[in-house]
Design a protein around this nucleic acid. Sequence first.
DNA 1: CGCTCAATTATACACCATGTATAATCTCCT
DNA 2: AGGAGATTATACATGGTGTATAATTGAGCG
Lengths: 208, 208
Amino acid sequence: MTPRPYPKGERKHLVDAGRDKIIAAASEVLNLDDLSAFSLDAVARRAGVTRMTVYNHFGSKGVLLGEVFDLLVERDAFSGMPALFEAKDLGAALDGLVGMLGRFYDDNRQLMLKMVGVAGLDPDLDKVLLEKNQRRRRGIEAILGKFGAPKKPAVERSELVNTLDVLLSFHTFNSLAGPDRTPAQVVPHVRRMIRGILGERSAPARRR
Amino acid sequence: MTPRPYPKGERKHLVDAGRDKIIAAASEVLNLDDLSAFSLDAVARRAGVTRMTVYNHFGSKGVLLGEVFDLLVERDAFSGMPALFEAKDLGAALDGLVGMLGRFYDDNRQLMLKMVGVAGLDPDLDKVLLEKNQRRRRGIEAILGKFGAPKKPAVERSELVNTLDVLLSFHTFNSLAGPDRTPAQVVPHVRRMIRGILGERSAPARRR
DNA sequence: CGCTCAATTATACACCATGTATAATCTCCT
DNA sequence: AGGAGATTATACATGGTGTATAATTGAGCG
């Protein structure tokens, strides 16, 4: 290794702050309604930084988007995960998960649409997204492990996980919502779908 | 109207043939594994035509993709629709629909991914896709109308349609399949999910 | 056959985005 | 103050979309 004058000094914090500012700016630009507004130039301008700085931190558009998604998923989408383990039963825990994700998809609908879009054209980002989507799967498995499988063991465990994973994906919320509703508004619908899958017939109690 | 020397002569057929050739070429390029291989230049070259000709027929990339999707949906995805009405009951008809769509998604997986991608960034194409996806919804409604709603009327009709629509979407097949399976291979899985929603407990008979 | 006119082509151009390269400048840290 | 890393300014190559325009081809008609 070459000698480093500022191995882990205070400077690193400033640099990291710049990094975060860029990621935040990227999130904001991605969440704009204007579909064609996303470019590294727009991101750099909003971050108060040169386009070159963006390239210095991340090496490409795909990597930047990957990091944005990474941060968002970990910090926003699944931040309420620990609380779900306090739920009284499996149904309640899954209801909580649906609500969490519904809110996240709602806050980031435009961003998610563009993320999926770019991933469809950029192999690098595509791999990152696939990886990050494992996060959701692991969450489902953890909940199922904690509260036990449903009474009806007709469906195999792994298939149940697959099913829940699809029902909890962004695409489910997005297409259920369509152009006129918001993802958050279809949360009750998704909850009913999941109850249907689990074999519980009707919702037990009122739940906001 | 200005006078037209070749109002509806034989020539029009040749022109339309050229149009079709371009659409076919676009489908082929879209179905290549190489994610970044799609450009109007590549389409034109594969069609044995100049890029200008593409712009003469369609006015933009978005419009071309819209027409590609239109043709594919009408000619390939739903061509087997009439046969479904000969099914012996609702479950069988929906099984048939699942099979039809599974095969279509399988044949056009790369294309669908890129289509969704571009639509996420191009507002024009996005509108076209939304419109074309109504085709699936109408198919579901027609089948439900012909065979009657399931015995269990616990869920409302429109919500049932929404649910089936999501389960039959490309995204469902694509994410259930993941990187290792094909959309066609998850057809049985989707059929079980739908039976679960309809309230029928287990598959009635063997079905290929 | 030869003319006409639509369609296609050839060519050039403007614009914008990604990504690379390089030298100059800034600024924190020692 | 000085050194080194981070940022900037600037230029450039590449590749895609979309527009404009003149030249060329070829089917259909008299």
